[in-house]
């Protein structure tokens, strides 16, 4: 099954600082929870990754490499592929990251495609969709932290303790919820801005027809297009209450409301051709 995720966040360092960190595989790799780097040779590296959900454990061994590194556009793609250490299944991921200068800060977009085969993929209850979404969310969160540190800082911290769960992407093919009015405390936002899963979007080849057909389809399927308003509402939803609940222990309080408004505006701008 294939899943695709888009993340976007802004870090308070210059684009050159962020770019330098992004190229440092020994610091980027640990952002992926459960990942261990074994060897690094030039743009290629090998490693292992252990995916764990409750009693379910799948360990992959594989390699990855930087591809399409474009230092002018500040974009690169990481292609990774692995096999189950025990079992015949495979996992592959393509992570396309791009940096955009935002004054003295840097906006980062991360587009991740994630494909799993074998036993973990052969279920209707969507275990891997659940896992994949969380994994990629946490990767983006950690990457955000890392890039925010700038070059020369210590490698990314260990994955968050178990009581702090990763962000959950907006479920596929779903109408957007109104942000709950009243009763909610003003949301606090982390600094730098936490990445938000904009959407889980359909992977290439996943026919939009299936969605039109309104068939329940396991993880990875989604809407095909969304309006800026919807996008914004998603941001509100994800960056709002659930986010607050989940990341509050990690972050120092900041002037959340203004930042939130800024985020929303950025998203609108982006969708209306602002970038």
């Amino acid at each position: 099954m294939a899943m695709r995720f888009e993340h976007e966040f802004t870090v308070p360092v210059s684009i050159e600082q962020a770019w330098a960190v992004l190229l440092d595989v020994e610091r980027v790799a640990p952002c992926l929870p459960g990942a261990t780097l074994d060897t690094v040779e030039g743009d290629s590296f090998t490693g292992r990754m252990k995916v764990k959900v409750g009693p379910i454990t799948v360990t992959y061994r594989g390699d990855a490499s930087f591809q399409d590194v474009d230092k002018d556009a500040h974009s690169l793609t990481i292609k990774a592929s692995g096999k189950e250490a025990r079992g015949s299944g495979t996992a592959g991921a393509t992570v396309a990251a791009r940096l955009y200068p935002e004054g003295s800060a840097t906006r980062v977009t991360v587009d991740t495609t994630f494909n799993v085969t074998g036993r973990p993929a052969q279920f209707g209850r969507g275990v891997m969709a659940e896992v994949g979404a969380k994994l990629i969310d946490r990767f983006a969160a950690n990457l955000s932290d890392l890039l925010g540190e700038g070059p020369g800082a210590e490698p990314a911290a260990e994955p968050a303790p178990p009581n702090v769960t990763p962000l959950t992407p907006v479920a596929p093919a779903d109408p957007v919820q109104e942000p709950s009015a009243g009763g909610a405390e003003p949301p606090e936002l982390p600094h730098p801005s936490r990445p938000v899963s904009l959407t889980v979007v359909p992977a290439p080849g996943e026919a939009a027809g299936e969605i039109r057909d309104q068939d329940p389809h396991p993880g990875g399927t989604s809407r095909t297009s969304r309006t800026p308003e919807e996008e914004a509402l998603d941001l509100l939803e994800v960056a709002g209450i659930p986010l607050l609940k989940r990341v509050a222990p990690l972050v120092a309080a900041v002037a959340a409301v203004t930042l939130l408004a800024w985020l929303v505006r950025r998203a609108l701008l982006r969708r209306t051709g602002g970038s």
Binding site: M1, A2, N115, T117, A121, Q122, F123, G124, R125, A203, G205, E206, A207, E210, H217, P218, G220, T221
Partner: peptide
Amino acid sequence: AVHDAEGNLLTTTMTD
């Protein structure tokens, strides 16, 4: 019997 977009059979158990 349901396959995903990559051709994985998803209904491999009687749960599904």
